[in-house]
C-alpha cells in the first residue's frame, strides 16, 4: 500500500516539496511526454480549484455559524449549496489523487513480480480501468443530461439545481480515466507515471 507521505504532512519541519525534474521539459521530450505534462498540469490545476472550493465552504459555514450565534437567520439554502459544492470539490481532485498516487492501493504482490510481468499486468489492469471509467463517464454524462432536462433541483425551498454537480461527476471521472490511460502508457514505456516516477 503506497500512500504519498509527503502529501500527508510527513515532514514535521515543513520542508519544501522536493522537485522532481520533469522529463517533458527536456528538449528531447516526445509527444507522449508532452501529453503527460498536459494531463498532469490540468489535474494539478483542478486540484487547486478543489482546494479553493474547500476554502469557500469553510468560510461560508463559519459565516453561517457566526450569524446564528449573533441571533441572525441561517444563510438560505447553504446546506443544499454545500452538498452540491462538495461534489465539485471531490471530483476536481480525482485526477490529481491518481497523479500523486493518493488513491489507496497495494503493491505487495506486484512489486515482487519480474519487471516485464509487472508491466504487462499493470498495462492490462489500467486498460481495463480506462474502459470501465469511460463507460462511467458516458453513463454519468447521460444522467447529467437527464437531470438538466428534468430541471432536477434540491428537494427544499432553495431550488439549487443539481445538474452542474452531475456534470462535474462526469468530468471528474473523465480526469481519472485519462490518468488511467497515462498509467497504461507509462507501464508500456517501462516507467511509472505520476508522483512515483
Amino acid at each position: 500500500m503506497r500512500t504519498d507521505t509527503e502529501r500527508l504532512g510527513a515532514d514535521p519541519h515543513g520542508s519544501a516539496p522536493t522537485e522532481v525534474p520533469d522529463p517533458a521539459s527536456t528538449p528531447g521530450g516526445t509527444v507522449l511526454d508532452r501529453l503527460e505534462t498536459v494531463t498532469e498540469t490540468v489535474a494539478r490545476f483542478a486540484a487547486y480549484l478543489g482546494g479553493v472550493g474547500i476554502a469557500c465552504l469553510v468560510l461560508a459555514t463559519v459565516t453561517d455559524v457566526a450569524r446564528r450565534a449573533a441571533g441572525m437567520t441561517s444563510i438560505n439554502g447553504l446546506v443544499d449549496l454545500t452538498e452540491v459544492a462538495l461534489v465539485f470539490v471531490v471530483y476536481f481532485g480525482f485526477a490529481q489523487a491518481e497523479v500523486d498516487k493518493t488513491h489507496i492501493r497495494t503493491s505487495f504482490l506486484t512489486e515482487r513480480l519480474p519487471d516485464r510481468v509487472r508491466r504487462v499486468v499493470l498495462a492490462a489492469v489500467w486498460a481495463l480501468a480506462f474502459a470501465f471509467l469511460l463507460w462511467a463517464v458516458v453513463r454519468t454524462g447521460q444522467s447529467a443530461a437527464d437531470s438538466f432536462h428534468a430541471g432536477e433541483s434540491r428537494a427544499s425551498q432553495s431550488g439549487v439545481p443539481v445538474w452542474p454537480a452531475r456534470v462535474m461527476v462526469s468530468l471528474g471521472l473523465l480526469g481519472l480515466a485519462l490518468q488511467s490511460l497515462m498509467n497504461v502508457i507509462a507501464a508500456v514505456r517501462g516507467r511509472r507515471s505520476g508522483g512515483d516516477r
Binding site: 441561517s74 438560505n76 446546506v79 427544499s156 425551498q157
Partner: peptide, 19 residues
C-alpha cells in the same frame, strides 16, 4: 428543522428554519 415549506410558514412568526 425545516422541510420545503417551513421557511414560508414560520418566517411571519419571527422564527427560522434550517435543514
Amino acid at each position: 428543522r425545516a422541510l420545503a415549506t417551513t421557511d414560508t410558514m414560520v418566517k411571519p412568526l419571527g422564527a427560522t428554519g434550517s435543514f
